[in-house]
Amino acid sequence: MDTTTRVLGRSGIEVSALGLGCWAIGGPWHAGSQPLGWGEVDDEESIRAIRRGLDLGVTFFDTADVYGTGHSERVLARALAGHRDEVVIATKWGNTYDEATRQMTGTDGSTGYLRRAVTASLRRLETDRIDLYQLHLGDLPLDRAAELLGTLEELVAEGHIRAYGWSTDLPDRAEAWGAGGAHCTAIQHSFSVLQDSAEVLAVCERHDLASINRGPLAMGLLSGKFTETSTLDANDVRGIAPAWLDWFRNGRPTPEFLARVAAVREVLTADGRTLAQGALGWLWARSGRTVPIPGFRTVAQVEENVGALAHGPLRADQVAEVHRLLASV
């Protein structure tokens, strides 16, 4: 069985089993004084990293219009120039922003904004279609989300998008679109060794949807580079962590999550894997639908993460041991 590729749910679109998450390469952006980016970035290094991923077989790239208030989409377009037909591009909409000030300004879950947003993303991505278009408002009320399905189906029929999905951690939201959206093919949700998502994964299994895993390395905790004395820059979303970000507090890794990393390190690094590669292998072992999308800012990070493909999923006994160890932390 080929463990290096996966299918995006019922769309039939084949992708590499590992994608690249393009949040960090958007650079700094804020909501008021709250940083939402990962600090300063080098666009040329971002482009080299994306192209290195291409060279190593990565075909799936996930971004959002709001990352860097448009900057991530623009950088991705530069990096993929001349390779559009070789790759699958996913982006998201629903947050509003000001590109000039790099400020997120609010949210808009209306059908009118959906049409404007897809047009703007197509322009920034320099493409005529978006392969996977994802709602970025995880808790949008179900009645308002249902109103979007007709417009999304129209966008599929018009050729602007090939399929759509919802970036949400709420099983009822995933269920609603999985059951009701003809061309809904994926749910993006937070999923890692440190933050299970069994309920949303079950929805994906039930409705033939891809499970796209954001935060597969817990925003760096599963890279192994952080200790209790590590500090994050105030221009980094992890340095002044918003309420929804559990893994960091007061500019430092959260002690209870560091303890969980320590508990599973030996199992995850067995068989010659790095800690990050073991964490990715755990996700692949959980389901044939999972597509982790670790973030990156450097060529070296892409090379390490893509190196996990050579090892493939963890064995069933290793997955069971991880669960046993975490239950005792």
Score class of each variant (00 low, 15 high):
residue 45 E to F: 10
residue 276 A to P: 09
residue 80 L to F: 05
residue 55 D to C: 00
residue 289 R to Q: 09
residue 162 R to E: 05
residue 157 A to S: 14
residue 154 E to H: 10
residue 277 Q to N: 09
residue 302 V to C: 02
residue 147 E to P: 12
residue 145 A to S: 12
residue 89 I to N: 06
residue 24 A to P: 10
residue 110 S to D: 10
residue 89 I to W: 02
residue 24 A to K: 01
residue 106 G to N: 13
residue 184 C to N: 15
residue 272 G to V: 00
residue 3 T to N: 06
residue 72 S to W: 02
residue 1 M to D: 14
residue 325 L to Y: 03
residue 21 G to R: 01
residue 50 I to Y: 02
residue 31 A to E: 06
residue 267 V to G: 01
residue 3 T to S: 12
residue 134 Q to E: 07
residue 69 T to P: 14
residue 238 R to T: 14
residue 137 L to P: 13
residue 25 I to D: 05
residue 28 P to H: 09
residue 63 T to F: 01
residue 200 V to Y: 02
residue 293 I to R: 00
residue 200 V to M: 08
residue 320 A to K: 07
residue 57 G to H: 12
residue 265 R to T: 15
residue 191 F to D: 13
residue 129 R to V: 15
residue 124 R to Q: 04
residue 204 C to P: 11
residue 320 A to N: 13
residue 79 A to S: 11
residue 35 P to L: 05
residue 85 D to H: 13
residue 135 L to D: 00
residue 45 E to W: 13
residue 33 S to C: 02
residue 257 F to P: 04
residue 270 A to R: 14
residue 244 W to V: 01
residue 292 P to L: 07
residue 251 G to S: 03
residue 230 S to C: 13
residue 18 L to Y: 12
residue 277 Q to C: 02
residue 170 L to A: 11
residue 56 L to I: 05
residue 107 T to H: 02
residue 328 S to T: 15
residue 15 V to D: 08
residue 53 G to R: 01
residue 118 V to T: 02
residue 22 C to Q: 03
residue 144 R to V: 03
residue 34 Q to P: 08
residue 306 V to Q: 06
residue 133 Y to D: 00
residue 190 S to Q: 14
residue 266 E to I: 05
residue 213 N to Q: 11
residue 106 G to L: 13
residue 90 A to R: 00
residue 20 L to Y: 03
residue 50 I to E: 01
residue 171 P to N: 09
residue 101 T to R: 13
residue 248 F to T: 04
residue 172 D to T: 10
residue 51 R to Y: 05
residue 104 M to N: 07
residue 187 I to A: 12
residue 179 A to H: 06
residue 49 A to W: 00
residue 67 Y to D: 01
residue 160 H to T: 07
residue 156 V to R: 01
residue 169 D to G: 15
residue 93 W to Q: 03
residue 113 Y to G: 04
residue 9 G to A: 11
residue 195 Q to A: 14
residue 177 W to F: 15
residue 73 E to H: 08
residue 208 D to G: 07
residue 254 T to R: 09
residue 156 V to C: 08
residue 251 G to L: 04
residue 188 Q to N: 12
residue 25 I to G: 08
residue 208 D to M: 03
